[in-house]
Design a protein around this nucleic acid. Structure first.
Lengths: 355, 355
DNA sequence: GTTTGGCACTCCACTGTGCTGACTGCTAAA
DNA sequence: TTTAGCAGTCAGCACAGTGGAGTGCCAAAC
């Protein structure tokens, strides 16, 4: 990508104003409107000339010859990176966010889902949340419970709550005492460790220590594997119907394509999970990111933008909040919303963390 | 409601054909089309007369003077109750349903969600599932686990798997032995009982037996209350984007109203939960039900129909599957799909039930 | 009594036309 | 470099005209 020519002050101001006006009205912005509504100190003809140059530079596009201008991906990008003034939340928004987490559930999946509801309600767009990978939770406790001679229940508790439970049917009788000894051995060896650091070899070693059968060894491996990973990405989305309000999605074909992606969680996950890896390594506070139109990849989302904001849980756990909407979204407000919600969510998770 | 006049054979056949044709084409059906495509043995003029009478009887309506006819709620109702021939599933559908449950999760909420995905995929409509109320599960096991001197974890296991877990922070030190004795006492007193039959007095009695503190009594009550009920109805829905394909929902206002109801789970639950109560009492196999247009209640759903089918879990647990779509839905096929899926789901739940 | 062909009538959906208004680019003067 | 003025472009809208699908009714046929 070639560097865009630098924008002089007036061009920058005009671009910012076009984006601002278009975000508010959803109508192509003409030179006349600009001269009238905003005090630029120059005539519409001058603005016209500037806008022509902004179009040549790739910041604006014209839907048709005799229409006003609309920002391009590059126009939005410049706006977000350099022209936009950061916003802070209204008192009311802050209060609603705090209120939501004050009496939120302790259950990770419930919290994640409630957070997407909150965020979609406040933002008027589609909200998505990815739960922190279980690999990064700390192991707290495992208990093998005796239910009957040939059945038992295994429960694994991590710092984020119960990660997995599973019923086993044994081939041969098992007594409660063996289960307790095995539980104790595993607890003393693994307590406090991060799940992804626990190796299968270590599990087997612990089993051998108390003379567990081969069958039990397999069972222990299975239950640990299950508590580390889920088959489907752990993700929630809500507020899809908000998109119906946006004039750009009145075309049903486009809307379908988008909703298909949302329903098919895998694609949605891949879209946002990019934010996980870099943030987990980078030290310091997390940063919101904005991805605009074609930057997102899928053609179906070429008229959408996404604001993402990682949140932290414990030392290692990282999840992501995201807001998906039309490119014509109020970036400042949504960034502020996502940031504050991510912060509150992280705080809440740390509060309810099992220590 | 006044009884409709009986339909003679020919009227019945014409009504059935109009409904059938309209379901397939989504276009108002005219007398000419009927005479041409279906072998009625009479001319279009005769059909015209019959259709006029069917309209007078309230079975058909005309969108405008020079258009064909469209079924009314009463027309669909008659079709579903008396005219339609029951369908059975294709080999392929049956295979997909069986395949889905062969390696389905043991986790109740996962199964419920996967079932809605399956059903929305097969039916091409919106699928909804309500999980059986936890009140009807059988109590299996409770374990109070010692995590540290002042924190412990309680896990309640019911016949459908883990129902609740909760971390307690105690005001004063608690030792592992007390927790174990309390767990044992609760288990021996309550094992196998249905959750809704367990009274708070009984819980308190058991606590007193082993000399538990007031604080622990409250904790036990809380964990049992939590395992019986969830705040939100336990419900899953998927396939909303299927509705976009239906021509009747190309009107965005109508679509919005419907999606709003779907997102707001409470209304959706109330809509379908009616099916729970009567079926739980009635002996014998469950029956599918169809509710059409205004029968559903909410004005927003006046152009929709819902097929519901209860499924059973254990002796008492009853949940419901539902398919929501336009009134112009292939009732025979959807009833067969819902029935077969409900049966498979019930079987699966009973297979994975903890005994 | 029922059925049928014929006919006049109705009304939606579509098409083409012309108009309006918003906006542009360009040019020449300030 | 800025501005006023002007001609040109094009979407969107209102309007009228047309075609066609379908109806209701009536009189003749069965």
């Amino acid at each position: 990508m070639i560097d865009k020519p630098e924008l002089d002050k007036r061009k920058a101001f005009i671009l910012a104003t076009v984006v601002y006006e278009y975000i508010n009205t959803a109508e192509p912005v003409g030179s006349g409107t600009l001269a009238q509504k905003y005090n630029l100190g120059v005539s519409s003809a001058t603005i016209r000339n500037e806008m022509a140059e902004l179009e040549a530079g790739g910041y604006l596009v014209q839907p048709h010859t005799s229409a006003g201008r609309v920002p391009s991906d590059a126009g939005y990008r410049t706006y977000v990176d350099r022209l936009m003034t950061p916003e802070s939340l209204t008192k009311d928004d802050s209060r609603r966010i705090r209120g939501q987490f004050r009496d939120a559930s302790r259950e990770l999946t419930d919290v994640i889902e409630q957070t997407t509801r909150l965020l979609s309600g406040l933002s008027g767009n589609l909200a998505i949340a990815i739960a922190p990978s279980r690999d990064t939770h700390a192991f707290k406790h495992v208990q093998l419970l005796w239910l009957s001679a040939r059945t038992s229940l295994a429960v694994v508790v991590t710092s984020a709550g119960v990660a997995a439970q599973r019923v086993f049917e044994w081939q041969s009788d098992v007594d409660a005492d063996t289960l307790t000894r095995l539980s104790n051995a595993l607890n003393s060896r693994l307590g406090g460790r991060i799940m992804e650091d626990v190796s299968p070899a270590e599990l087997e070693g612990t089993c051998d220590e108390i003379g567990a059968t081969r069958e039990m060894r397999d069972a222990v491996r299975a239950i640990f594997a299950q508590s580390r990973q889920t088959e489907e990405p752990d993700l929630a989305a809500s507020g899809a119907q908000n998109l119906l309000d946006q004039p750009e999605f009145h075309d049903l074909r486009k809307l379908r394509a988008i909703l298909r992606i949302v329903e098919e969680q895998r694609t949605l996950y891949d879209l946002i999970a990019d934010e996980l890896a870099p943030d987990a390594q980078r030290p310091g506070p997390s940063q919101p990111h904005v991805r605009i139109g074609h930057e997102l990849g899928p053609e179906a989302l070429s008229e959408c933008s996404v604001v993402t904001m990682p949140y932290r849980f414990g030392d290692r756990g990282v999840g992501v909040l995201a807001i998906l909407g039309p490119r014509r979204m109020p970036y400042g407000r949504l960034i502020a919303l996502a940031s504050e919600t991510a912060r509150s969510l992280g705080d809440h998770l740390n509060d309810v963390e099992i220590r």
